[in-house]
């Protein structure tokens, strides 16, 4: 018989365990966020680090706070470059999500319908690209999409096109690269939802007179909505802030907020403006997620 653990130390340890994720969030999310916010409220300066004012110490806190302002955010609203790049990012991310859903759903569905012994292999095939560096895989697309690259050679070889498509450095190339890169994040949650789908529900629908198409529309699709939402979030959120793909595959006119951020930060050395761009991006991403979460919570609430 083991001696019972004293109650106080037990709850103390329990508190510690519960606190770890919060400590993690404070150290690696909240603290950096506060720093970025503070920079966003500062002004650019030729200084080291390149913004002003610097924190002078707790005694002059009032003056310090008075020197912070929202000017950078005002600039984001005034200059069309910024909100256009946000809109463009939203558009490309939304398109990426839709295309990934259109390709990923049938893929995940076929995987879920495949015999059990095949499913493991198919799953490995989906995550196999992660074995290679993301950067290298995007670079590889340059070789495929560039004029007289692999794609052009193949298409002209079988006589489908007469001249190079000139896809590289266009929004289309960005979309191709984004869909390619994020497809697994759509497929995996969809597969796990569809695989768990109770097969007898489909039999019941069919037994009650539903054609295969009706069964899909009235049973499979509504029951896979959680997977669709999870997959879409996993694609949409990283896609909106994506920098590498538009930088490598996009053209000079490809406007994405990740690229703008990079330019402000490294080319213009305007840390405060770059921070403001980042914070607006965060709000743009987090708000719809919070609304979604609340809607889902309410949906469940009405069920209970």
């Amino acid at each position: 018989m083991s001696t019972p653990v004293p109650r106080s130390s037990g709850t103390g340890r329990g508190l510690l365990v519960a606190a770890i994720p919060y400590l993690w969030l404070v150290a690696f999310f909240l603290a950096p966020f506060v720093i970025v916010l503070r920079i966003a409220l500062s002004d650019a300066a030729t200084d080291q680090p390149p913004y002003a004012p610097h924190f002078p110490g707790i005694s002059q806190l009032g003056e310090f706070l008075g020197a912070l302002d929202l000017e950078n955010f005002r600039l984001l609203g005034d200059d069309p470059l910024y909100w256009q790049s946000y809109l463009s990012s939203l558009r490309i991310a939304a398109l990426t999500t839709l295309i990934a859903l259109a390709i990923g759903y049938p893929l995940a569905y076929a995987m879920a319908l495949a015999p059990k012994r095949w499913q493991g292999i198919l799953l490995v095939l989906v995550i196999l690209p992660f074995w290679t560096s993301f950067l290298i895989r995007v670079y590889a697309w340059i070789g495929i999409l560039r004029p007289d690259g692999l794609l052009d050679m193949a298409l002209m070889g079988i006589g489908l096109t007469a001249e190079p498509l000139r896809l590289l450095n266009t929004d289309t190339a960005v979309l191709i690269g984004m869909v390619y890169s994020y497809l697994p994040f759509m497929v995996l949650p969809l597969f796990s939802t569809l695989q768990k789908l109770d097969g007898t529900l489909l039999e019941a629908a069919s037994d009650l007179g539903a054609t295969p198409l009706t069964t899909f529309l009235t049973v499979t699709l509504p029951l896979s909505i959680p997977g669709i939402l999870a997959g879409s979030a996993l694609v949409f959120i990283p896609a909106i802030g994506e920098f590498v793909i538009p930088d490598l595959l996009g053209g000079s006119d490809t406007l994405m907020v990740g690229k703008v951020l990079w330019n402000e930060f490294f080319s213009n050395r305007d840390w405060p403006l770059a921070s403001a761009v980042a914070i607006v991006l965060l709000v743009v991403l987090v708000l719809p997620l919070m609304l979604l979460q609340r809607a889902r919570g309410q949906g469940e609430g009405s069920v209970r």
């Binding site: 529900l201 039999e203 019941a204 037994d207 009650l208 007179g209 539903a210 054609t211 509504p222 029951l223």
Partner: peptide, 20 residues
């Protein structure tokens, strides 16, 4: 004849009620 065209209905052991 496929199941959806048969004038036969089944009550499933698991009931198979549509949860949504």
């Amino acid at each position: 004849v496929p199941p959806h065209k048969r004038p036969v209905n089944m009550m499933f052991q698991s009931y198979a009620l549509f949860p949504h």
